[in-house]
């Protein structure tokens, strides 16, 4: 690494504070060692595979079915979360009611509860003899071991992403803006659809994208409730594990590569949304 202290090096502005070399050097080194090099291996391994082999294992019938399932259920769960997450964020940002602090803390439960615990708990609830499943079973509704079960697990995992994206924006949206709409003759409904909703739109979209991205990669909470039938309820992360257990490293790597590219695309999308909304609304 070039010495950051070199005078000719203008990539860093001078500062009176000491420790740049140490902290920057250490953090970049650690980042490279723990994150960048390991992540790079997956792309190198894919590249070493050859294009046709990559397509063959990365887009096999079983793999495509798994992608479709993972992305489809993550999108469905993201949508459910966009709606209910907005509702929860609205209620938390706007109203006061007894127990609000507890409810506010509870929203972060999916961040704190290990996914495996969530997985077995949801399965226990929705299994045909479970607390909720026993009432759904006679109606012919199967949740556990179907796509609906996967969606429920992903709704659990993704909810806080939407709530925590939208809530601060809603809270920041000045009361005076809504009053302004009212003085100009807007009904409450018009104020919501034309003033509030467009203002929180980017945050809602960001929350949806975060929940979606998390849902696509989610493993622990899903595998217990999904039933894991190849081609039907086998999510992509599970397929990677299955391939690994069969020592099919190429298959696992190819599927992982496809998923990682998809994740990075989503990440890029999120950044674009945020840059766009910042540029429009001012810093």
């Amino acid at each position: 690494m070039n010495s950051p202290f070199s005078k000719r090096n203008r990539w860093r502005q001078p500062s009176v504070l000491p420790g740049f070399g140490l902290t920057f050097g250490f953090s970049l080194g650690w980042l490279t060692l723990i994150v960048l090099i390991p992540l790079a291996t997956i792309f190198l391994k894919s590249a070493g595979m050859g294009w046709s082999d990559f397509i063959k294992v990365g887009f096999s019938e079983r793999a495509v079915a798994a992608y479709r399932l993972s992305f489809g259920t993550a999108a469905a769960a993201g949508l459910v979360n966009a709606i209910f997450g907005l509702l929860v964020a609205w209620v938390l940002a706007r109203y006061s009611f007894p127990g609000k602090k507890v409810v506010n803390a509870l929203v972060d439960l999916p961040f704190a509860l290990p996914t495996a615990v969530a997985g077995i708990a949801l399965t226990a609830l929705y299994a045909p003899n479970g607390w909720i499943g026993q009432y759904l079973d006679p109606l012919g509704i199967n949740v556990a071991f179907t796509r609906i079960g996967i969606i429920i697990a992903l709704v659990f995992i993704g909810l806080p992403f939407v709530v925590r994206s939208v809530e601060p924006v809603l809270a920041d949206l000045g009361k005076d803006v809504e009053e302004a709409a009212a003085t100009l003759g807007a009904t409450r409904h018009q104020t919501f659809t034309r003033v509030i909703f467009p203002a929180i739109g980017p945050a809602l979209l960001t929350g949806f994208a975060l929940a979606f991205a998390r849902g696509v990669g989610e493993y622990g909470s899903v595998i217990f409730i999904s039933g894991n039938m190849p081609g039907k309820t086998e999510i992509a992360p599970l397929l990677i594990v299955t391939q690994l257990e069969q020592y099919a490293y190429d298959g696992a790597t190819a599927i992982a590569t496809v998923m990682m590219i998809a994740s990075f695309a989503i990440l890029l999308g999120i950044n674009l949304i945020q840059a766009w909304s910042r540029g429009r609304a001012g810093a």
């Binding site: 390991p38 992540l39 291996t41 997956i42 996914t115 991205a213 696509v216 990669g217 989610e218 493993y219 622990g220 992509a236 992360p237 599970l238 990677i240 594990v241 690994l244 696992a252 790597t253 992982a256 998923m259 990682m260 994740s263 990075f264 989503i266 990440l267």
Partner: peptide, 10 residues
Amino acid sequence: SVSPVVSGLI
């Protein structure tokens, strides 16, 4: 933004 499973795989 990396699936936990992929994080193990690498």
